[in-house]
Design a protein around this nucleic acid. Structure first.
Length: 420
RNA sequence: GCCCCCAUCGACUAGCGGCCCAGGUCGCGGCCCUUUCAAGGCCGUAGCGCGGGUUCGAAUCCCGCUGGGGGCACCA
């Protein structure tokens, strides 16, 4: 039997990171088994918000690299089919009319059970399940009717979804059995919590996929990090790219207990992937990201600056703050200049005529200046750094000076010397 | 109230009865390197929620408790 799974977001807003993790598991499972991964929008109306959210969801999936097969389908389009099935169930005595709505007759004895791939055997007493509404009195099918029906029609073999659906499962199983279809395999994956153990929400930081993108996280980071939330191939491996994830993923190894989203570890991992990029690729991504965020900085200069920051920042969004001095004027805090006027002046004198004006020679020259004044390197270079970059923290000083160019360097040194 | 799910370092997890006085990764602390910040190297910190069983032996199996979470809609 070939595998067919589905991602079923409701178009109520932007794609939440918890939902993406669930979709990721669907996709990994489908790819590993050479099966299909469908994208099914569980909408109940056709408003403009829905259209926008649907678009946004696809954009986010594309960005992160989770693919779907075939056309996107909409629950709303199958309303009529749902109604027909409900009427059939009424005719068979398995459902009944109730004040204009149609209710499903739940068995009131025994249990409904299934073997959940991540949780094992689960069973619920039927007496605790009420007769649920299939069709509202306005004619629209309810979620708990439409969703399992779509699973049947789409030939879904494995329903991989969030654990908040566990209590819906017995209801849906009963419906599927009532129409005489095969019940799919269920796998309920755990929730993702925020760093305080509570539900992931805005105050924890980014929660929408688009926000992670804007923060300067790489798609490969998100894929790797999310996969590890609730799943691990073994006790050792933490860094895995797309192909390895597909190869090693296993639904059976998904943990049943909820995980907390750890932004600190995410940052670490992003730094790893950022550093792994070739200098060319790194510069490319940086330029694209800056463009997306509305910076009109010179791409040539960004490209030349990229190698100076690649080892030093964990997110692309740190670039403007860290290397912005290359693109705009700076205002050093006199306190940070720390009375460094003498060394700043001396540096200005040395650099004024230095040839060639490159990092190697700049370093040699400045080391001479600092030594000449009897200063330790860290004492001597710091005022110069502040003068040049406007900050106590910066990329390598000598390379930065080379990129800035002689003219700007000299004027910044002069300005700083005046206020130090 | 009823039903269901969950429970190993601060976090993500490995562990599926002896290989575990519990391993890896992040974080955190220290040291080294060092022009700042990072990166890197080395060392370290810290955990099986509690109580009963079962067993020669339990983090691992069973029961209870406690604590989290979800559900009980003509929401999805």
């Amino acid at each position: 039997m070939s595998v067919t799974v589905r991602m079923a977001p409701s178009p109520t807003g932007f794609l939440h990171i918890g939902g993406v993790r669930t979709f990721l598991f669907n996709w990994l499972y489908a790819r590993q088994h050479g099966g299909r991964n469908l994208l099914r929008i569980e909408n109940t109306d056709t408003s403009r918000e829905v259209a926008e959210a649907t678009h946004q969801i696809q954009e986010s999936l594309r960005w992160i690299g989770i693919e779907w097969d075939g056309d996107v389908t909409f629950q709303l389009d199958r309303m009529d089919d749902c109604r027909r099935v409900a009427e059939q169930l009424v005719a068979e005595g398995k459902a009944y009319e109730d004040e204009g709505a149609i209710r499903f007759r739940m068995p009131d004895e025994g249990v409904t059970a299934w073997d959940d791939v991540v949780r094992g055997h689960v069973e619920v007493p039927n007496e605790t399940i009420e007769d649920l509404v299939l069709i509202r009195s306005d004619g629209r099918p309810t979620y708990n009717f439409a969703s399992p029906m779509e699973d049947v029609w789409d030939g879904i073999t494995h329903v991989i979804r969030g654990e908040d659906h566990i209590s819906n499962t017995p209801k849906q199983i009963q419906i599927i059995r009532a129409i005489g279809a095969d019940v799919p395999v269920y796998a309920h994956v755990p929730n993702i919590f925020g760093s305080d153990g509570k539900k992931l929400s805005k105050r924890h930081g980014a929660t929408g996929v688009d926000e992670f993108q804007r923060e300067g996280y790489l798609p490969e980071t998100m894929l790797n990090f999310l996969a590890l939330l609730g799943w691990a191939p073994d006790g050792e491996t933490t860094l895995m790219r797309r192909d390895e994830l597909i190869e090693r993923f296993s639904l059976e190894r998904v943990s049943p207990s909820p995980a907390q989203f750890d932004y600190a570890k995410l940052d670490w991992m992003n730094g790893v992937y950022l550093r792994e990029l070739s200098p060319e690729e790194y510069a490319h991504r940086l330029v694209l990201w800056l463009g997306d965020e509305g910076y009109d900085w010179d791409a040539q200069l960004v490209t030349r600056a990229a190698p100076l920051v690649q080892e030093k920042i964990a997110k692309l969004s740190e670039f403007p703050g860290f290397a912005g001095f290359l693109f705009h004027d700076v205002e050093p805090d006199p306190a940070d200049l720390d009375g460094g006027a003498p060394v700043i002046e001396a540096a200005r004198g040395a650099l004024a005529t230095l040839e060639p004006f490159d990092a190697e020679h700049i370093e040699a020259s400045l080391r001479g200046v600092v030594e000449g004044l009897g200063l330790k390197p860290r004492q001597g270079f710091q005022p110069i750094r502040v003068a040049i970059t406007g900050s106590r923290v910066s990329p390598g000083l000598f390379e930065s000076i080379e990129l800035l160019g002689r003219e700007t360097t000299l004027s910044r040194l002069a300005a700083a010397a005046a206020i130090a």
